[in-house]
Simulated scan of single mutants.
Amino acid sequence: MKHLPIMLLGALVLTACSHPAPEAPAAAKPAPAASVAKTTSEPAQAKAPPAFTPPAESAIPTGPLGDEIRRGMAIFTDTPEHAHDYVGNGLSCSNCHLDAGRLANSAPLWGAWGVYPQYRKKNGRVNSFGERLQGCFRFSMNGKAPPLDSDVIVALQTYAWWMAKGAPTGEKLAGAGYPKQGFKPPQPPDYARGAAVYAKDCALCHGANGQGQQVAGRNVFPPLWGPQSFNWGAGMHELDNAAAFIKANMPLSRGGTLSDQDAWDVAMYMDAHERPQDPRYAGDVAATRAKYHDTPMSLYGTTVNGHLLGSGTAK
């Protein structure tokens, strides 16, 4: 079994808190610093990507097209309510793509629409935008993929198309995705440091146990691990994705206030907890890691504090 040694800690959608730092669990063995340590030489950027501002919600047209755009927005912001047949947890698209998919540096919809179709290493083939949305349901929502011609996929694609109206196609826009370029921690991520960051900056919203907060059965703040969170196949389980999202956007409304090190440490803490199984799992954690998770950014199939991650969701 391949281990990813490091002292680990992490979190996803964070907000300041006065809870005391939890007692640090037994540390995992430190991983080679080269796996995530900051490098001294980084490639020079060619030209700055073009900037883009999506249209205001008030600009949604009237008539059938506007109705479909609004339906897509409703699915995006309350996915369990409007796409309940395809979700397996309580998460909504807007939990990771903030401000109804509008906010720069939180993988906004307007930044994704124009770069598809594209080849995705995750499944080894060219994907349409609709297929990319299907993957979100399968992994982030821990559910099942709606058919490409379903009302759900059509509405979401219509919303994304409208959000990107006027944007150049075929090139990455400023603020698209999560800002990962050159974003490396000064030191290898550490679980114990991450636990302290989580208690201070995340637990107020996401709870000391990482299970979020609900009102009337709906998530106000999403669970970051456990049975109702994203599964081991979701992109947010990878340390670089989680750290970049956290750095840019968390604590909520205070993005950019955590240090690079704190963002990586708390991402480690979050991603070192159990969550639902990768749907591509074929009965063996080691084989699943070798096939889909063989990267220092994934903790799946590694042992942290005596627990083999991917071996079962801790309730």
Results as ranks from 00 to 15, higher is better:
Gly194Arg: 07
Ala196Val: 05
Tyr198Cys: 02
Tyr198Gly: 01
Lys200Asn: 11
Ala203Tyr: 02
Ala203Gln: 09
His206Pro: 05
Gly207Ile: 00
Gly207Lys: 04
Ala208Ile: 06
Ala208Trp: 06
Gly210Asn: 11
Gly210Gln: 12
Gln211Lys: 11
Gln213Asp: 08
Val215Ala: 14
Phe221Thr: 15
Phe221Met: 10
Pro222Gly: 07
Pro222Leu: 09
Pro227Ile: 08
Phe230Lys: 12
Gly233Lys: 00
Gly233Phe: 01
Gly235Glu: 11
Met236Ala: 06
His237Thr: 12
Leu239Trp: 02
Asn241Asp: 11
Ala243Asn: 08
Ala243Trp: 06
Phe245Ser: 15
Ile246Tyr: 03
Ile246Phe: 14
Ala248Trp: 04
Ala248Lys: 00
Asn249Gln: 10
Met250Ile: 01
Pro251Ser: 00
Pro251Arg: 00
Pro251Tyr: 00
Arg254Ile: 02
Arg254Asp: 05
Gly255Cys: 03
Thr257Cys: 02
Leu258Cys: 11
Ser259His: 08
Ser259Asn: 12
Asp260Gly: 03
Asp260Gln: 10
Asp262Ala: 12
Asp262Pro: 00
Asp262Val: 04
Ala263Cys: 11
Ala267Asp: 10
Tyr269Lys: 02
Asp271Phe: 03
Asp271Cys: 12
His273Met: 14
Arg275Glu: 03
Arg275Pro: 12
Pro276Phe: 08
Asp278Trp: 10
Asp278Val: 06
Pro279Leu: 13
Arg280Phe: 06
Ala282Asn: 01
Asp284Cys: 12
Val285Lys: 01
Ala287Ile: 04
Thr288Asp: 11
Thr288Ala: 09
Arg289Lys: 03
Arg289Glu: 01
Arg289Val: 04
Lys291Met: 02
Tyr292Lys: 01
Tyr292Cys: 05
Tyr292Gln: 05
Thr295Tyr: 00
Pro296Trp: 00
Pro296Lys: 00
